[in-house]
Design a protein around this nucleic acid. Structure first.
Length: 483
RNA sequence: GGCCCGUUGGUCAAGCGGCUAAGACACCGCCCUCUCACGGCGGAAACAGGAGUUCGAUUCUCCUACGGGUCACCA
């Protein structure tokens, strides 16, 4: 049975990189009919943020990453909040002490600081000198009786090397002499993060560990711990970081590191997930647009990249646009309706046509309002807008075009795009001119904008006959007085 | 600094000893077109450098350079 876990710290934000880790972890569980476990690692009380756990829940839910076990869903491996498991760790450390695989260290902070400073000034990497590793039983019991505080450290072999296998990187070997006798239990009796992790993952029977690349160097120590306990070692999959550029990680400072940043910017969540999945992973075929369900079948850790990926918002926009374009018109309508309402209060317009025109032109949801803001009222505009070299129009020619158009439009009975278009084209053919000669001034008169979602006749159909006629008349007045 | 990992066009990336070195985004040009888009066609653009191994290296080995990670009683 495959069991994977996502173990975030409740910081109040969901980093894009963490979300991607969660996604990959979730995918591995789902494609193996396994369990996806959510464990909250809240032991850093200094960093505790009110409501931070809800951010984790909400983000995962919004993204469709459902968990089988978690703080709110007991699967028999609880508790799933690390701070509630604090009494389970020390016993395991004591077990290692009894077996001679770990030891109590009574060195205080002063001695450690002094030691580290000396090592640094000697040009050495700061490390523990194993001062307490070989205390006699007598010395130990004396110190215990004197109630001298202690930590429990793991006995790391002094020579040899430790090898572990990463599913992506293959075998990685580190010399044991570079590994410190790491602390398992702190002086306050609490476990260190690394120790708690190993114990929790074992107790929860986690089979695959997906985590950031920053853990690659500490994994040998993890392995040593598993070996000391005689526990089965899980499969490791270390994934590279997501970068802002070649040398910098996505950061909080630049406001581009969190899931919520992108939702705020108007990205559609399934598209965002799609893009994140592709950052550092490449599918076998040419397909690029993936739903979560498709990812479950397509995802393969063999396609993961070993080098960091730069987050490209331009590409994200493109994927987002691809999603918006390829959904059904009905779905798209429901999605953008709130954004249309932000700018459009009128109700007597052809929403269906508006949505139809908007769909191929939408990239970000938040850009919708500015695209439709002319519908309620024509903005102030300069008559220079009527100048187009390509359409061969000027304010003067536009004035006469609108004067031609007015009676023609007034005569259109069925006021939809097709009928308006045919009416205008009939005149265009009669005049023997480019259709832009009439179409361009119409569109400008109706919108007061250089770019609109749709052509002149479409906009006329959207805003309706009365409004169209009114706007043409207004434009005629404007052109007469300003030409 | 020690140790670990990485390095294919601007970006994401395919490639797993023999290819004119894919594809996508972005960029440029053309077509379509009632503006802008969508769509279609085409273009420019890459194996970090050097030694090996091999008949043959983007692919295997080593070195160099560059980049990242890690060396806490933090998680």
């Amino acid at each position: 049975m495959v069991r994977t876990r996502f173990a975030p710290s409740p910081t109040g934000f969901m980093h894009i990189g963490n979300l991607r880790t969660a996604l990959y972890t979730w995918l591995i569980a789902r494609q193996n009919n396994g369990k996806f476990v959510l464990r909250i690692e809240d032991t850093d009380t200094a960093r505790y943020v009110e409501g931070a756990t809800d951010v984790i829940y909400n983000t995962l839910r919004q993204c469709g990453l459902d968990w089988d076990e978690g703080p709110d869903k007991d699967g028999g491996y609880g508790p799933y909040i690390q701070s509630e498991r604090m009494n389970t760790y020390k016993g395991y450390a004591e077990q290692l002490v009894n077996e001679g695989k770990a030891y109590r260290c009574f060195c205080d902070k002063e001695r450690m600081d002094k030691l580290h400073n000396e090592q640094k000034s000697n040009g050495e990497t700061p490390h523990y000198d194993r001062h307490c590793r070989n205390l006699t039983a007598d010395e130990i019991s004396k110190k215990l009786e004197a109630k001298i505080p202690y930590v429990i450290r793991q006995k790391v072999p002094e020579s040899g090397e430790t090898t572990f296998v990463d599913e992506l990187y293959g075998e990685i070997t580190a010399p044991n002499k570079d590994l410190d006798d790491q602390i398992l239990i702190k002086a306050d009796g609490m476990p260190t993060y690394n120790f708690a992790n190993v114990v929790d993952d074992h107790l929860m029977e986690i089979t695959h560990i997906v985590r950031g690349n920053e853990y690659l160097s500490s994994t040998p120590k993890y392995n040593l711990l598993y070996e000391a306990f005689g526990w089965e070692i899980p499969k490791y999959i270390h994934v590279e970081h997501i970068m802002r550029d070649k040398t910098h990680k996505l950061s909080k400072r630049d406001g581009d590191a969190y899931f919520s940043d992108y939702v705020k910017k108007g990205y559609y969540i399934p598209a965002l997930i799609n893009y994140i999945a592709l950052l550092g992973w490449s599918p076998k075929g040419e397909q690029e647009k993936f739903t979560l369900d498709e990812l479950i079948t397509e995802f393969d850790i063999a396609g993961l990249s070993k080098s960091p990926a730069v987050f490209d918002e331009v590409k994200l926009r493109a994927i987002n646009a691809l999603w918006l374009r390829s959904m059904s018109e009905l779905e798209f309508a429901a999605l953008i309706f709130p954004y249309i309402k932000q700018a459009v209060k009128r109700l007597d317009i052809n929403f269906e046509l508006l949505v139809h025109c908007l769909q191929p032109r939408a990239e970000l949801l938040t850009e919708i309002p500015e695209k439709v803001d002319f519908i309620d009222a024509v903005p102030d505009y300069s008559i220079d807008l009527y100048v187009s070299k390509k359409m061969k129009t000027t304010p003067e020619s536009s004035l006469s075009a609108l004067l031609t158009l007015l009676p023609l439009i007034e005569a259109v009975e069925i006021f939809d795009n097709e009928h308006i278009y045919n009416a205008v084209m009939e005149k265009v053919n009669e005049m023997g001119v480019k259709n832009g000669v009439l179409m361009f001034p119409l569109r400008t008169a109706l919108s007061g904008k250089a770019m609109t979602p749709g052509g002149g006749t479409e906009i006329a159909a959207i805003i309706g006959k009365d409004e169209t006629i009114k706007r043409i008349k207004d434009a005629i007045v404007k052109l007469k007085s300003e030409c």
